[in-house]
Design a protein around this nucleic acid. Structure first.
Length: 159
DNA sequence: GCGACAG
DNA sequence: ATCTTGTCGC
C-alpha cells in the first residue's frame, strides 16, 4: 500500500512534523492492519522540545512508535563500538538520556534511536536491531523508502 | 555572537 | 531530501 501526497510546508530543522505528519497520518488511514509498533524515520524524544515527529505520530495514532533517525539533531554522545549491536547513550544538555546511538552494521555510521510513544528506550533499541541484519536502516523503514521512491518515479514518468 | 540544524 | 563518481566487500 502506498499513499501519495504533495507537501507544501518547507523543511525546517526541529519542525519536521509540520511538513510530514499530515501526509503520514493520511497514509495510516489507508492501512488496514493493526501494527504493534511503528518505526518513524526521524527523532522522537531526542528533539529540541522533546517532541519529534515520532512522538507526534505516536500520540495521534495512540500506538507505540520508535524514532530512528539517520543523523543527529541534538545531544552529545560517545561513538559506539565498531561492531553491529554496540550502542551508546545520547544525552541532552542536562545529562538526561534522550536516546541511543546504535550501530546496526559493522563499521557503518550508526542510527539515532529515541522513544516515540508508549515504548521504552531499551526496547526501542532491541527492536531496531531485531528488525534488520544486513542493512543500516531497519527493514520497515527501508521497505517504506523503496516503495515510496518507486511510486514517486512512476507518478512522474519512468525516465 | 557563532555554530548546529531529523527529512 | 536529491544528485552523483569512484570504491569496496559479500
Amino acid at each position: 500500500m502506498v499513499h501519495q501526497e504533495s507537501l507544501s510546508s518547507p523543511y525546517i530543522p526541529g519542525l519536521l512534523s509540520f511538513r510530514g505528519a499530515p501526509a503520514l497520518l493520511h497514509a495510516f488511514e489507508k492501512v488496514r492492519h493493526d501494527p504493534d509498533v511503528v518505526f518513524i524515520d526521524g527523532h522522537g524524544l531526542s528533539h529540541p522540545r522533546s517532541a519529534g515527529i515520532a512522538c507526534h505520530i505516536g500520540l495521534c495514532l495512540n500506538k507505540p512508535t520508535i524514532g530512528c533517525a539517520k543523523s543527529l539533531l541534538i545531544g552529545r554522545h560517545r561513538v559506539p563500538g565498531p561492531s553491529r549491536g554496540s550502542y551508546t547513550s545520547l544525552y541532552d544538555a542536562n545529562n538526561h538520556v534522550i536516546g541511543a546511538v546504535v550501530r546496526t552494521r559493522d563499521r557503518v555510521k550508526p542510527v539515532f534511536v529515541s522513544v516515540g510513544h508508549r515504548i521504552g528506550l531499551a526496547q526501542a533499541v532491541q527492536l531496531t536491531l531485531a528488525c534488520g541484519k544486513g542493512y543500516r536502516i531497519p527493514e520497515p523503514t527501508r521497505q517504506a523508502d523503496r516503495w515510496a521512491e518507486q511510486s514517486k518515479r512512476e507518478a512522474i514518468g519512468i525516465k
